[in-house]
Design a binder for these strands. Sequence first.
DNA 1: CTTGCCTCTGACGCTAGCGTCAGGTTTTAG
DNA 2: CTAAAACCTGACGCTAGCGTCAGAGGCAAG
Lengths: 125, 125
Amino acid sequence: MTVTVAAAERLIRIGEVARGAGVSVRAVRYYEQQGLLIAERSPSGQRLYRQDAIPLVRFFQQMFAAGLTSRRITELLPCWDAGHTDAEQRAMLRAERERIQAKIDDLQAALDHLDKVIAITDTHP
Amino acid sequence: MTVTVAAAERLIRIGEVARGAGVSVRAVRYYEQQGLLIAERSPSGQRLYRQDAIPLVRFFQQMFAAGLTSRRITELLPCWDAGHTDAEQRAMLRAERERIQAKIDDLQAALDHLDKVIAITDTHP
DNA sequence: CTTGCCTCTGACGCTAGCGTCAGGTTTTAG
DNA sequence: CTAAAACCTGACGCTAGCGTCAGAGGCAAG
């Protein structure tokens, strides 16, 4: 008979989070300052994170790349954490979705434009 | 018998350029400061533009949206103006192309991520 | 013990594309 | 002629996500 015990999760320090997610230590501190990432503290004051902080930071990077501000991300975090959403949050999700789609379209148009020029300059050196 | 005369192009002032391209007057001045857009000057010192300045400014906007800096755009302008390109410029064109494509891919991934969350929060209110 | 790496809290710096205000000239409409 | 609208040159401000430096404490290894 086996008994499963809730294993005390190994907490990691800020450097490990930063390396794991491919960002700077400064960036991780900044995320905390913006309310994106809450850390426990060791008795001596060092930040301690759960391991899922690493994918979370990666996720922040993805959203930043998509043009969301840290403020928007904090407002949308409950949609992930709890699965709980109100009408306002769903509207924000859709609005950001549309923004991103529009941005993709703009980028695609710019890409097409550049490709034309590349084609011309290649056949016409 | 009809004689075609090279019609003296009607020059426009900065306000018309700005309205035509959907940007601010300040932006147009900024482009000049960055070396993107050269303007003639009237005797009193006002900037005078040819009408193709409007599509040019639109193009700048498109490139800005694609993440190119004004510096890069100035370096690539000869590719449009003269059709003349050297190897370095062609390499820059390709590099920018790759950057934009990578950015599109990132945005698409973020969009897919958001769509998943939207689907969850919709079926699971 | 001390060497060396990691972490801490401020706090200022940076970039890029403008916004905006100040104070003055020019052009245009009536 | 005159008032409004448009234009000019500085020059400082703003945002957002960090970089970077300063000065000080924490922590495992030899």
